[in-house]
Design a protein around this nucleic acid. Structure first.
Length: 235
DNA sequence: GCGACAG
DNA sequence: ATCTTGTCGC
């Protein structure tokens, strides 16, 4: 279990130093639990902002993984958590801004999922610890990062066909894959976050794709975190 | 020193 | 991320 006093409000310099330390703890292998018990619940996480950015809103949507049944990929539970925004957006330090709120949302879940998909990078990060990795370390759950754009790394153009991929590399390492999740739409960047390997990360994302650009977990969380899906006022 | 730069 | 309306295309 991570330190109960894990610092979130650090100066950029200290935040970067901590990333180097935390990155050493990331494990890119599937857990025995995942192989033994399998996956029954997959969660999607995303963060939105209100009041011109003063309030951070975290959303977590848990979907059922029950191939062949009517409940497959249906919503089991969804929660929203709001709290004051604590940091500005700084490329490379996104997790310090978003993870605290995400943890607040997870605390409201009646039960944890077996796998988590996060809107943002996993290890496809300059120091190999994007928001998905950082969240995974804290929760000690398998996480996958699905970003809509690139933070770092290089890649060859992705094929036009759906499910075409291109390797994302950085400083001689493979850090993720660029995936054409839908035809005629900009590709997404998939990278393992924690407790999962690259191949499995890509497999799970593909398995959760319907006809949209984003996999169901992330797409659902996106809608809940965004203000367009706000519940109507009673009356 | 000059760009690039998740959300 | 957010501010914002309608509109073109599969």
């Amino acid at each position: 279990m991570p330190s109960a006093l894990h610092p979130w409000n650090l100066s950029p310099t200290d935040a970067v130093a901590l990333q180097y330390e935390l990155a050493k703890q990331i494990r890119l292998e599937c857990t025995p639990a995942m192989a033994r018990a399998g996956i029954g619940r997959i969660a999607g996480v995303d963060i939105g902002f209100e009041d011109g950015g003063e309030t951070t809103r975290a959303a977590v949507v848990v979907l059922a993984w029950q191939p062949g049944t009517t409940e497959h990929l249906q919503v089991i539970e969804q929660v929203v958590h709001r709290e004051p925004t604590r940091m500005p957006y700084i490329p490379g330090l996104l997790s310090y801004r978003e993870v605290p709120a995400a943890l607040g949302a997870f605390a409201k879940l009646s039960r944890y999922p077996d796998l988590v998909m996060v809107d943002g990078q996993g290890i496809a990060h300059p120091r190999r610890i994007g928001v998905a990795s950082h969240l995974g370390l804290w929760l000690e759950l398998p996480t996958i990062g699905i970003a809509k754009s690139r933070l770092c790394g290089r890649f060859e153009p992705v094929g036009e066909a759906r499910l075409s991929t291109s390797e994302l590399t950085h400083r001689g390492e493979t850090i993720g894959v660029v995936l054409r999740s839908r035809e005629k739409v900009k590709p997404v960047f998939v990278s393992p976050g924690h407790l999962i390997d690259q191949a499995s990360a890509l497999d799970w994302v593909i398995r959760c794709l319907h006809k949209t650009k984003l996999p169901e977990p992330t797409r659902m969380a996106d809608r809940l975190a965004s203000r367009r899906d706000r519940p109507k006022t009673a009356g």
